[in-house]
Amino acid sequence: MKKLPLITLIFSLISIISFSQETETQISEKENFNELKLNGLFLIAGSFEVTYERTINEESGVGFSVFLPFDEEVKDDVNYYISPYYRFYFGKKYAAGFFIEGFGMLNSVNEFIFNSNLNDFEKKSITDFALGIGVGGKWVTNNGFVGELNLGFGRNLFNDYSNTDLKFVGKIGITLGYRF
């Protein structure tokens, strides 16, 4: 008879300990994270793209990218872009792995139009908004460092371009960052 209360006490302690461990794990898995990332590919090409992302849950996140060129050759084509996005993740880790994204892009580009009176090209700055889709992959270390590869395409919606290349926008990145 004395063994029954002792066995009950041991099972109660084991279940309390295991329940508290599950609760701590569940809380840490449900935290939302912030990420700051820098596109290394664009740094090499002569521009600066920084991205902020906020995870919503283990399968999705929202964020935005800001692109600013500092090299004169890049400035001849693109002035800037601001691109908000939504991502859906398919990985096993929290908001990581393969993803698909939908994005918008407010962009300003330069179009060169031939002026027959001057016998030269005129530079015309055009601001437009594009919608697009993309795919990629994100890897996160246990310490919070983030590596990401992404590729996306979209189409400008509002302007009539004489240069058909400017109707379309692209996003490409090899980004490194930190999750906190």
Rank of each mutant, 00 (worst) to 15 (best):
R87Y: 05
Y86C: 03
K138W: 02
Y80D: 00
S65D: 00
F99M: 04
I56Q: 07
D77L: 05
I126N: 13
I113Y: 08
F88S: 04
R87S: 13
A130D: 09
E111M: 11
V74T: 10
G132R: 10
V66S: 02
G137C: 09
G136S: 10
M105T: 04
E59I: 01
V146K: 11
L106C: 01
F121Q: 13
N110V: 05
G144S: 07
N119V: 01
R87A: 09
P69T: 02
K93I: 00
D76R: 15
L118N: 12
K92A: 06
E73R: 03
Y80N: 00
E58N: 15
E148C: 06
N119G: 03
K93H: 05
L68N: 09
A96S: 15
L106A: 09
D120R: 11
G137W: 11
E148A: 04
F121K: 13
Y94K: 12
F67V: 00
F70P: 08
E111Q: 15
G104C: 02
N142M: 06
N142L: 06
G137L: 09
F129C: 03
K93L: 02
E101Y: 07
P84V: 02
G132L: 09
I133A: 15
K124G: 03
Y94W: 03
I113W: 07
E73L: 01
L106D: 05
I113E: 14
D128L: 11
G63T: 10
G102N: 09
N79E: 13
G136Q: 10
G147L: 13
Y86P: 05
G102H: 04
N107E: 08
I126K: 14
L68D: 04
N107W: 04
F129S: 03
K75F: 02
F145H: 10
E148Q: 13
V66K: 00
A96F: 05
I133S: 10
G102F: 10
G144E: 06
D77Q: 04
K92Y: 03
I113M: 08
E58D: 15
F70K: 12
K75T: 01
E58Y: 11
L68Q: 09
E72D: 14
S65W: 00
A95Y: 06
G97C: 07
E58S: 15
G104D: 04
N57L: 05
Y89M: 10
F129H: 03
D120G: 05
P69W: 02
Y85N: 07
